[in-house]
Simulated assay, not measured.
Amino acid sequence: MDDSEKQKQKNYVLWLLGRQDYSRKELERKLSQRQVPQAFSCELLDWCEQHGFLDDNRFCAGFVRRAADKRHGPRRIMADAQQKGLAKEQVSEAIDALDIDWFELAIEAYTRKFRTTDKQLDYKEKAKRMRYLTARGFDYQQIEFALASEANDE
């Protein structure tokens, strides 16, 4: 790999990082798709970390915050973050640092999706609503709390 090609790849990575934060794993994946040699890829990403352009902790905190703003539950956030190449402990720390009330977030996601409701939900409708909240990443206790809160509102 000659110097002009190395500079081209470096510019590409800096252009990507200038637009948004990425995890190291995501950038490794993008560079491998461009068929950049593994040795140069590691060297380039190490350089980016040394200069503060790439920071997995910063990316993780931002990712968790954005996912919570989208009303995703802790399970979904954990699964999505691991797909992005973040460590489980790192994500857990970021989730704990935000100090989110997951029960309130479950209620918010539920009421936003299901604005109008009948007084008595039949089994199929209740199952549909539970599947929705499960897909959003909430656990059973949080889902039951959201469903119960709606019943109490009426």
Rank of each mutant, 00 (worst) to 15 (best):
H72K: 11
Q83F: 14
E125W: 08
A97Y: 09
E89F: 09
K8N: 09
L86Y: 04
L16C: 14
W47P: 07
T111C: 04
Q33N: 13
N11K: 14
R58Y: 06
A94H: 04
A146R: 04
A67F: 09
I100G: 07
K84Y: 11
D99L: 14
V91K: 00
Q33G: 02
Y132W: 15
I95T: 00
D118H: 14
M130P: 00
Y22F: 08
R66N: 11
D55R: 00
L133F: 08
G85L: 04
F59L: 01
L121N: 03
Q82C: 06
K126N: 13
A151F: 04
L31M: 14
D153I: 09
D153V: 08
S41T: 10
E108D: 10
D139S: 05
D139N: 13
D80P: 01
K10Q: 12
K70N: 08
S23R: 03
K70A: 07
L98A: 10
T111H: 05
V36G: 06
K6A: 04
E93V: 01
M1D: 01
K70S: 14
L44M: 09
A81R: 02
R76F: 10
Q142D: 04
Y12E: 13
R131A: 15
L45E: 05
D55K: 02
C48A: 12
D80M: 10
K113V: 07
W15E: 11
R58M: 05
R66D: 10
L86D: 03
R71S: 06
V36C: 07
E93W: 03
A106C: 00
Q38C: 06
L45Y: 01
A148Y: 02
Y140V: 09
L27N: 05
T116W: 11
R131D: 15
Q33F: 07
D55G: 00
F103L: 07
A81L: 01
R66F: 07
K88H: 05
N57P: 06
F103N: 04
M1K: 06
D139T: 06
E150S: 14
L31C: 09
G62E: 06
R131G: 14
A79P: 00
A94R: 04
K113I: 10
D99G: 10
E5W: 07
L17P: 04
A148S: 12
Q50P: 08
R112P: 03
D3Q: 12
P74G: 11
G18D: 05
L98N: 11
I100C: 06
A146G: 08
V91T: 01
S41N: 00
A68D: 04
L54T: 01
S23D: 00
